[in-house]
Design a protein around this nucleic acid. Structure first.
Lengths: 225, 225
DNA sequence: TTAAAAACATGACATATATCATATTTCATT
DNA sequence: AATGAAATATGATATATGTCATGTTTTTAA
């Protein structure tokens, strides 16, 4: 198994703030885990025994609403950590993490992280900074949900996925989501999502190849009202 | 001016994690500020030179949507800190803070807090814990916005204000908001808010005395669909 | 105290979105 | 390649919510 201190992935998250010594210690007790597309890494209500560092793949963080529908709160990709919040707040996780493709994860036991939190201020400060940023992003999501139309929210979601996760060589979005996933991100019915995508096609803002989506007029999407 | 080390208010926020020595130092450089109802403590885009500790009063944190409407993200009361996030992330504030009644604030300069963040792990960990909790709350708001009706969101907002901030001796909610404020919390038109409040009155869930609202059937409100 | 302004309230109507029904296409499995 | 299941697509219709108009009440300031 790879060594944390030499792992490039950590540069994308707070683990980069750890010392070489701390990374060696983590490396010795970490475990690896493969999760197949559609499987859960953890589920709402679980008590986590550590955090995960995503080495490969993408997952969605979802929360079940009281009306029985799943809301996707966030997409998390290679390089990011999941489970830190629950570990910090010492509560069970409030979200489920479901793999959107085959994933490779490193699991770091809680005790290690707690230890580093108490001894390495840089690590704690980096986590704090990331959470502050996460809160800012959450504010934006709240405003969008509260104030914008389904049409606008879908356009912005397409732009977000395009800008954050990029496209494949054929120009289609590299994160492949079902229409239902899109609906669960923007908080609408699957049929509405499909209808708006059809509109976007007619307006030559996007094209679709099967379930794959290709943005052909990014500026147009930005202008959607 | 009062001394931080003897101030009871700090027990309600992360400042409680500071040592006596640190509190004395803060006490010597803090300043006091009075903000009248309706005035801004800070506005979206401002660069803050420190954080505020609320000694008295209530304010709303709002964000302007691209469609020109204000969204109220959070209500913040006596005992809480505001401005920490922006200080941690070293960015301009993403929200405006507007006083809902006359307020009394203590201002603590940035340099002091930064210093404490680097030297007192307990303080940093406490802030981290509060932010983790804030993120969890934000997730709940996102799900509610995305999945619930205006009727449900208004019912839940009334319950939230009742449970979190309590009532006056006559039973009316102690946080007094305009109908427009309610609309800006739940993300709807002011007229819709007024209409739903009228429905709630007809259903004997609440009564109103002028703009004041009194919950008379909390269980009924919880059952609203 | 009175006038003006702001907030509250309600009706009429327009529109966005949800829901239900039903094809059609794509995908996985044998 | 054939079959069934899942995902995508679209129409018809119901419903929730927004918008505009207008009137009433409450608050503010002269």
């Amino acid at each position: 198994m790879g060594k944390c201190e030499q792992c490039i992935i950590k540069e994308f998250n707070s683990l980069k703030a750890l010392t070489n010594e701390e990374l060696v210690r983590i490396s010795n007790c970490k475990t690896s885990r493969i999760v197949k597309k559609g499987e859960a890494i953890f589920e709402e209500g679980d008590t986590l025994k550590g955090i995960y560092c995503i080495r490969e793949g993408i997952c969605k963080l979802t929360k079940l609403s009281s009306n029985g529908k799943d809301q996707i709160i966030k997409l998390v990709v290679k390089g990011e950590l999941i489970g830190q919040r629950s570990l910090v707040s010492e509560e069970s996780v409030n979200l489920s993490a479901i793999a959107l493709n085959d994933m490779e994860l490193c699991f770091i036991p809680k005790s290690e992280i707690i230890n580093d939190l108490q001894k390495n201020t840089n690590f704690t400060l980096d986590l704090l900074k990331e959470m502050a940023h996460g809160l800012k992003e959450a504010d934006d999501v709240i405003v969008n949900m509260a104030q914008k139309s389904v049409r606008q929210r879908l356009a912005e979601t397409l732009i977000y996925i395009n800008d954050s996760f990029g496209t494949k060589s054929d120009g289609t979005l590299s994160v492949l989501l079902s229409r239902e996933d899109f609906a669960n991100i923007i908080g609408t019915a699957t049929e509405s999502t499909i209808r708006v995508l059809s509109q976007f096609k007619k307006e030559d803002l996007i094209t679709t190849i099967g379930k794959q989506i290709k943005i052909i007029d990014l500026e147009g999407l930005r202008r959607v009202e």
